[in-house]
Structures are given as C-alpha cells and as structure tokens.
Amino acid sequence: MELLRIRRYVGHEEIINAIDISKRGEELLISASDDGTIGIWDPRTKNAVDHIETDFPITAVAVSEAGNEIYSGGIDNDIKVWDLRKKAVVYSMLGHNDTVTGLRVSPDSQSLLSYSHDSTAKTWDIRPFAPTERHIRTFDGAQMGIEKNLIRASWDKAGKKIAVGAGDGTVVIWSNDNGKLLYKLPGHKGTVNCAEFTPNDEPIILSASSDRRMLLGELR
C-alpha cells in the first residue's frame, strides 16, 4: 500500500523530537524541537500558528485533554506546564535527574506519565487543584542503555498499566496502582524506543526498536 503525504509543516529550525494532538475542542498539533521551541499548529495550514520559546531543547511534549495546557520536558530535567493562551509556565514538576524523554497524559486525564534518561518512569497529579507536591509514584527497572535514545512511555486503555522501552531490548510494564513490575518482555536486539498498548481490551503491546523491527507481544 502506497502512503501519500497530505501536508508538510514548516517552522522549526532543528530536529523535531515529539508531537501530540489535542483530544477535544480546537484541533491543534503541538511539536517539540531541539531549537528550544514548542510549535503550535493548525493542522489545516502548513505554517505554525505560534511558538513558545524556551531556554533549552525540548525532547518531550503532551497536551491536556481540554487543550488548555501543554506539558514539556527537556534537557534541563524539569517538566513544565504551560498555559497555552498566556504562553507562560503555570508550574513545574521536579524529580527527574536527567533528560525527560517521554510524556503521556493518562486515559482519565488525571495523571501525567514521564520517562527519563535517569532510567525511571514517574507519574504526576495534574488535576487543577492538586496538592503542591504532585509526584505520585516512581517506577524503576528499565535500563536506559548506552544509546541514550528518546524512549517513550505509554498507558493501557484503562490506565492500570504503564509501559516503556528499555536499552536492553525489552519492554518493561508496571502496575500503575502499586508500582509492581509485571512484565519484562524480551525479543529485540536493540534499544526499544517505544511501546504501545493496543487501543482495545486485548492484552497486546506493539514495540519498535533501533534494530529496525516492530514486534507484537501478548501479556499472559
């Protein structure tokens, strides 16, 4: 099957590391780049609607379900929460000790999942009136590896499990409820850059690696 490019978006001056799209409300595409900017795009036009300028390269980005806040992570190790309308930081979430490589909002929109070069995944409370200390839980057990790729993290449909790739060629899955390590799935020969649960209720996970292979794994 031949894939046809619909549109090419132009605006960043350096590598684009991550993108996310709004879930409801105004349709927006958000991008994160090594040029230190967060791009805000109307998918119907090729040029960015706006940019948020920061002081460091941005390596991870996510958008709140309502579309009013952007979560960004970069080489300064911090997760910043931006008011999209004001283009200003509302608050920051500190705790990672190295570059943040992946951000993902939970299915119920109450939590944010992050992963970092410090080899930990963390969850954060992103409810509007959450306590000042928003860190919920830290998940250990996934090796980053020497490649230092921008590894992504994901939730299952119910928000009960989280998954990340690892530098040892495995997919690591934890229980979100208690942080227990549930699975360490082998199969790849290189760093697993992303691991995604299927959008239905089947216990299937798709992984993609620097070994140029994509694998389907079944959780038993």
Rank of each mutant, 00 (worst) to 15 (best):
M1T: 14
M1S: 15
E2D: 14
R5S: 07
Y9D: 00
Y9R: 07
Y9P: 00
Y9K: 06
E13P: 00
E14M: 11
I15T: 14
I16M: 03
D20T: 15
S22I: 05
K23E: 12
R24F: 05
L29S: 06
I30N: 03
S31L: 10
A32L: 06
G36N: 05
G36H: 07
G36T: 10
D42N: 15
P43A: 09
R44N: 11
R44K: 15
H51M: 06
I52C: 10
T54E: 13
D55I: 06
F56N: 07
I58G: 08
T59C: 15
V61L: 02
V61T: 00
V61M: 06
A62R: 02
V63L: 15
S64Q: 01
S64T: 04
S64P: 12
E65R: 13
N68K: 08
N68D: 15
E69W: 12
G73S: 07
I79Q: 05
L84K: 14
R85S: 15
K87V: 06
V89R: 00
S92Y: 02
M93Q: 08
L94G: 03
G95V: 05
G95Y: 08
H96K: 12
H96V: 07
N97G: 09
T99D: 02
T101N: 01
R104S: 13
V105L: 10
S106P: 04
S106Y: 09
D108S: 14
Q110D: 12
Q110V: 04
Q110M: 11
L112K: 03
L113F: 06
S114N: 03
S116R: 08
H117D: 02
S119V: 02
S119T: 11
T120K: 10
T120A: 00
T123K: 04
R127G: 03
P128W: 05
P128F: 09
A130T: 11
R134E: 04
R134L: 02
H135R: 04
I136Y: 01
R137I: 07
G141F: 11
G141D: 09
M144I: 07
M144L: 13
M144R: 06
I146K: 12
E147P: 06
G159K: 02
K160S: 13
I162W: 03
I162R: 02
A163S: 14
V164G: 01
G165P: 04
G169Y: 00
V171H: 05
V172G: 00
W174Y: 08
G179I: 04
L181V: 07
L181S: 12
Y183K: 01
P186G: 06
P186N: 01
G187Y: 10
H188S: 05
H188I: 06
G190Y: 06
T191Y: 00
V192D: 01
N193W: 03
A195C: 08
A195N: 02
E196T: 11
N200A: 08
D201E: 12
P203E: 13
I204Y: 11
S207C: 11
S209R: 00
S209P: 13
L216Y: 09
G217L: 05
G217W: 07
R220P: 01
R220K: 15
